[in-house]
Amino acid sequence: EPLWIRPDAPSRCTWQLGRPASESPHHHTAPAKSPKILPDILKKIGDTPMVRINKIGKKFGLKCELLAKCEFFNAGGSVKDRISLRMIEDAERDGTLKPGDTIIEPTSGNTGIGLALAAAVRGYRCIIVMPEKMSSEKVDVLRALGAEIVRTPTNARFDSPESHVGVAWRLKNEIPNSHILDQYRNASNPLAHYDTTADEILQQCDGKLDMLVASVGTGGTITGIARKLKEKCPGCRIIGVDPEGSILAEPEELNQTEQTTYEVEGIGYDFIPTVLDRTVVDKWFKSNDEEAFTFARMLIAQEGLLCGGSAGSTVAVAVKAAQELQEGQRCVVILPDSVRNYMTKFLSDRWMLQKGFLKEEDLTEKKPWWWHLRVQELGLSAPLTVLPTITCGHTIEILREKGFDQAPVVDEAGVILGMVTLGNMLSSLLAGKVQPSDQVGKVIYKQFKQIRLTDTLGRLSHILEMDHFALVVHEQIQYHSTGKSSQRQMVFGVVTAIDLLNFVAAQERDQK
């Protein structure tokens, strides 16, 4: 057995438009009618409502009807409940999964919650491996369901041993009777949507819809739904939504950006999952974080739909894509998950301010006199920076000697690579993860907040409520011999709460 199987392995699926269902090699399930009293909570997966979006479509000038398939009504709160249950049931049916076995899954959280929910009911041990950027709410729900959680670096490539995929496979090879159901490759993922989600949409719309818009992560949702719609409703256009920084969209030119990270969760990847059939997507749109969270908040405030950030991405694209539809036509959007997962993220004004998705003037509360002053007023001194090749031991000596707790790590040209902190280095040394002679590049981390000289002290204040420091950066445009230009970030300084307090105190003292 291989040590790991690539999540982007070539698909062996034989589905073709027009091929009889009787030739399918898979076990198919028909939607079942729910009894009045459910035998367990797993029976509350599927049969989610279709809700008309009344205000947002009109606000953006849509002539067509805009409908939302509300997947956050599933038992675990997301569309991923469907595939989690289906993968477990299919693994039980073919004898792969037996009582007492362990389920391991690399996930952005929602599939993990679905699997942990099913594992709690069915009696399996469950280990979820997820990147650090995923919300604390997801972690809390997983723990409450009895799952064990392993976190991995957000910026690790999918084929790196440190990625959530790599760590999951390492655990599988170490733990007896453990299984990775593997949402990236498992046919049960798109089949769950082909058999149930798509049929529900067709039934709820009486077979009449002209466009379907869905955000894409593993691709199982859009693949399964689109294949069924292509068979039953061939005139329906399928629109895929991919965040900026991901590479799922086609044509490839759409993916060209210097951005590699994004805040919206559960969609987009740096590889093409095996289950994603991009041939059934008629057109791709890219979405960005700001519009995703703005539209998610709009869905909550104006439509009462308590959905997550990827739902915002989907609707932001839908109001663009559906401009081509006329009166009497219908566009369906998939709202994948609930706001429950993001209470401390985009639902929080403070978080939105820190990330730059909300401006101070958007909030009406009274601010102190210094709130709208610029960061450049602080008069920061030149920063202490270190090269990635310097040793951890030497870096600790320098920081202690100069009285700093942290320093930016830059390359020879001064471009920011990340940050090192005294606390992080000492804990890594004590844990045996690094040696004093190791290069400081081994303990770089990139989960820090950046701020510009033109940003306000109010925004800085919000950042420092949650973080010990902020890195002050400025952009530099560099022209190359080819005539092309590129933008790079340079370090201007490091600012802490002490710097802000000293500035405010000094100004008030001078005024007296």
Rank of each mutant, 00 (worst) to 15 (best):
I238G: 07
V241G: 11
D242G: 04
G245Y: 02
S246Q: 02
L248F: 02
P251R: 14
P251D: 02
L254D: 07
N255V: 02
N255F: 06
Q256I: 10
Q256K: 15
E258F: 11
E263F: 07
V264P: 02
V264Q: 07
E265N: 04
E265H: 07
Y269C: 02
D270K: 07
F271V: 02
F271N: 02
F271C: 02
I272V: 09
T274Y: 04
V280G: 12
V280F: 06
K283I: 07
K283G: 05
F285N: 08
S287G: 10
S287V: 08
S287I: 06
N288G: 15
D289Q: 02
E290I: 02
E291S: 14
A292N: 04
F293L: 04
F295K: 05
A296I: 02
I300L: 04
L305A: 02
L305G: 02
C307G: 07
G308I: 04
G309F: 04
S313F: 02
T314M: 06
T314N: 02
A316D: 09
A316L: 11
V317S: 06
V317Y: 02
A318I: 02
V319C: 15
E324I: 13
E327G: 13
Q329C: 12
Q329P: 02
R330H: 14
R330L: 02
V333T: 14
V333G: 02
I334F: 12
L335Q: 13
L335V: 15
P336Q: 10
V339D: 02
R340S: 02
K345G: 05
F346S: 05
F346C: 05
D349K: 08
D349L: 09
D349Y: 06
Q354N: 13
K355C: 04
K355D: 02
G356T: 07
F357G: 04
L358V: 09
E360F: 10
E361G: 11
L363F: 10
L363Q: 08
K366V: 13
W370Q: 15
W370C: 13
W370S: 04
W371Q: 14
H372R: 02
L373W: 02
Q376R: 14
E377Y: 02
E377M: 15
L380F: 02
L380I: 10
L380A: 11
L380P: 14
S381Q: 09
T385P: 02
L387A: 08
P388E: 04
T389C: 07
T389F: 15
I390A: 02
G393V: 15
T395F: 05
I396T: 12
I396V: 11
E397P: 04
I398M: 14
L399K: 08
L399M: 15
E401S: 09
K402M: 12
G403N: 02
F404I: 15
D405L: 04
D405R: 09
Q406A: 10
A407T: 14
V410W: 08
V410R: 13
V410G: 13
V410E: 14
G414E: 13
G414Q: 15
V415P: 02
I416N: 07
L417H: 13
L417A: 07
V420C: 15
T421A: 13
L426K: 11
S427E: 04
S428F: 11
L429R: 15
L430Q: 02
K433P: 02
Q435V: 11
P436Y: 09
S437R: 11
Q439F: 13
G441W: 02
K442S: 08
V443I: 11
I444R: 11
K446V: 12
K449E: 14
Q450C: 14
I451T: 04
R452A: 11
L453E: 14
T456E: 15
G458S: 13
S461M: 13
I463R: 08
L464V: 13
D467I: 02
H468I: 14
A470T: 12
A470D: 05
H474D: 02
E475V: 14
Q476P: 13
I477F: 13
Q478P: 13
Q478R: 13
Y479F: 12
H480G: 05
S481P: 02
S485V: 02
Q487K: 13
Q487G: 12
R488E: 14
R488L: 14
R488Q: 14
R488M: 14
R488H: 13
M490F: 12
F492A: 15
G493S: 14
G493T: 15
V495S: 13
A497V: 12
I498D: 13
D499Y: 02
L500K: 02
L500G: 08
F503V: 13
A506D: 06
A506E: 09
E508S: 09
